[in-house]
Design a protein around this nucleic acid. Structure first.
Ligand SMILES: [Mn+2]
Ligand SMILES: [Mn+2]
Ligand SMILES: [Zn+2]
Ligand SMILES: [Zn+2]
Lengths: 145, 145
DNA sequence: ACATATTTGCAACATAATTGCAATAACATG
DNA sequence: CATGTTATTGCAATTATGTTGCAAATATGT
């Protein structure tokens, strides 16, 4: 229909969400970064043009639709990253390792790294795994050398 | 009970902490439970006898001394459990798996379950691992059957 | 019992997140 | 392109978690 429609707008429509400025802006920001983006950072860069509450609702809607996923860092701060693929409103499939760099404090989605399944005591039924590794990221390691 | 008091008092003294009511009460509560205890729960059961701020400071001191460790659940809520191993002021070594039950919402320290080390891309240097498994705990599984 | 360093309570502040409601904007329909 | 319906937003208020400064209280060695 409309060839001007961007891929973000398609994503919104596909998920039954109206294409509003706030939503497009969040998608723009998140997709332009190589690591997860914290809620405080988002709130700061989006400024007062978009209300805090709207940002929270946008993030919540995106998470529910499987457009983004949330990663809590070691301080409990919410960080968001675009889901790579296959996630939808019914299920997220991004059980990859997240890497929290002690130096630059970026949180990387290590999409290719599956979480190794631990052997839990009998009786415990594991449904989801969430592994956060902390240390020094590749970029920071390079800088030092 | 009296034995406990003595044991806890020794623990405090050993760590250069004065044995105060608030600290002993926190140790009592945490040690009497089979799973990690959330800050909100602690605040509730300790009531207004102990100020919120004092509770925060007690928890912070205990964590620094290696007496307890903090586990953030999937909502980012702080939960605390007594350290089993020889943790001290210089280092925690309780990198065990934590199990967050979807049913009873208890967080278990699976002391015996080490976190399997993931293979991260070259350049990334892992220093710590934090794995939280969610699912149904042993007690809840039993109840259903 | 006394001196002193630690610990506590209080008040104030900071930040993250949620809710209800009214105003507004998106968009399907004609 | 005007209009009606519905989703979305902004605003104000509220809740929850956590921190800081400071003065009062208390634990402890002497
Ligand atoms: Mn991710
Ligand atoms: Mn533990
Ligand atoms: Zn880094
Ligand atoms: Zn359970």
């Amino acid at each position: 229909m409309d060839n001007n429609i961007t891929r973000f707008e398609e994503l919104l429509v596909k998920n039954g969400l109206k294409r509003t400025g706030a939503r497009l802006q969040v998608l723009e920001i998140l997709s332009g970064r190589d690591s997860a983006t914290s809620q405080p950072y988002l709130e700061q860069v989006m400024g007062k043009v978009v209300d805090r509450v709207t940002l929270y609702r946008v993030l919540q809607a995106f998470e529910e639709k499987g457009i983004i996923h949330k990663v809590l860092d070691s301080h409990g701060t919410a960080n968001y990253a675009i889901c790579s693929d296959g996630c939808d409103a019914h299920q997220h499939h991004d059980e990859h390792v997240h890497f929290d760099c002690d130096n630059c404090h970026k949180i990387y989605c290590l999409e290719s790294v599956k979480i190794p399944v631990p052997k839990v005591p009998s009786g415990f039924k594991v449904q989801h795994l969430n592994l956060i590794a902390t240390g020094i990221c590749s970029a920071c390691t390079d800088k030092v050398n």
